[in-house]
Design a protein around this nucleic acid. Structure first.
Lengths: 167, 167
DNA sequence: TTTTTAGTTCTGTAAGTTGCGAACCAATTA
DNA sequence: TAATTGGTTCGCAACTTACAGAACTAAAAA
């Protein structure tokens, strides 16, 4: 017996979806994804229902299995995509993991940390140089990052409070 | 008459500078710079005095003129590097433009804007889909970005005030 | 005027990426 | 047991990028 279709009735898909996946894909390439990864992500953002099985993704994007496999692998490693399973169905259904994606974004805001310490190293190294003005300017940038490092968690806290967040 | 040396007396350079330029360079590659661009930027951050002429950069990094020329071109186009000149000296002295670099960083924080509008498009397209829960989650991410778009300028204002900023 | 200086611009190429196809594997079905 | 399903992994071809080398240019010096 082959896979019994328990999906909700196919609905009117989003109009011009192929083209929109391409456009969205180009946008998400800017977020450090390869073209195909970006297209997979874009497709999962636009698909209805929001989960798709491997073959459906492959068929839609007209790409090879290996390409889809690797794209999903990376998207899952990054936490932007996850999969669900259905009882009595061996397939995996891939979907955008919105919670993890949000966490990912929030973490990105914390990336000022390494900047502060890198600048700190530079400033320390420059301590005895003949260019106090340049060093002061460097210090100013570091202070700016330090300020952000303090303020951004505050902003985050404000959001959590506003959302009645449980995290 | 060839270029008369009016530089301040050569001082003790930063220890292990070659290695440190490589390390710092690797760090700055993460900020969308090619390896050589990142090394040039790193070198200008560590050099004493903080400005270097073309040949000194080339000699230090052991790269070709074209590579240095293109690296400086891009760093200047990005606003991270500028040059100064000295009277009676045809050479240009390249240095990190700290003010512009800071502006560049501050602008980067404004990059949430495109995200909001992209997500808005997706949400609009998904309006009539059969997955209200997914759509709600998407909306939540958009609201988060919208929140940031409002709050980040506030944080920036706070910094400007604290610095008695003149910009 | 010729030469030198301070670069820029134009190919060519080596190295790194991206994605395909084929082979492979583990679980399920026949 | 053999065949099918749902993928993963490997090796390679096509494309892209980063850098080198050489030819070029504009300004200054000789």
């Amino acid at each position: 017996m082959h896979h019994q279709n328990t999906d909700p009735p196919a609905r009117q898909p989003i109009p011009d979806i192929k083209q929109r996946v391409e456009e969205l894909g180009v946008f998400f390439e800017q977020t450090k994804l390869t073209p195909m990864e970006a297209r997979v992500f874009a497709l999962l953002l636009l698909s209805d229902p929001p989960e798709m099985d491997f073959y459906a993704i492959q068929d839609f994007l007209q790409a090879s299995k290996s390409t889809i496999s690797n794209a999903l692998k990376r998207l899952m490693a990054e936490g932007r995509v996850e999969y669900i399973t259905k009882p009595g169905d061996r397939k995996r259904y891939f979907r955008v993991s919105i919670i993890k994606w949000l966490e990912h974004i929030q973490q990105a805001l914390a990336s000022v940390g390494p900047f502060v310490s890198t600048l700190d190293k530079v400033i320390t190294l420059r301590k005895d140089t003949s260019s106090p003005e340049f060093n002061r300017d460097l210090h100013r940038i570091k202070d700016y990052f330090l300020f952000l490092k303090e303020e951004l968690p505050r902003v985050q806290a404000k959001w959590n409070e506003r959302e009645g967040s449980d995290d």
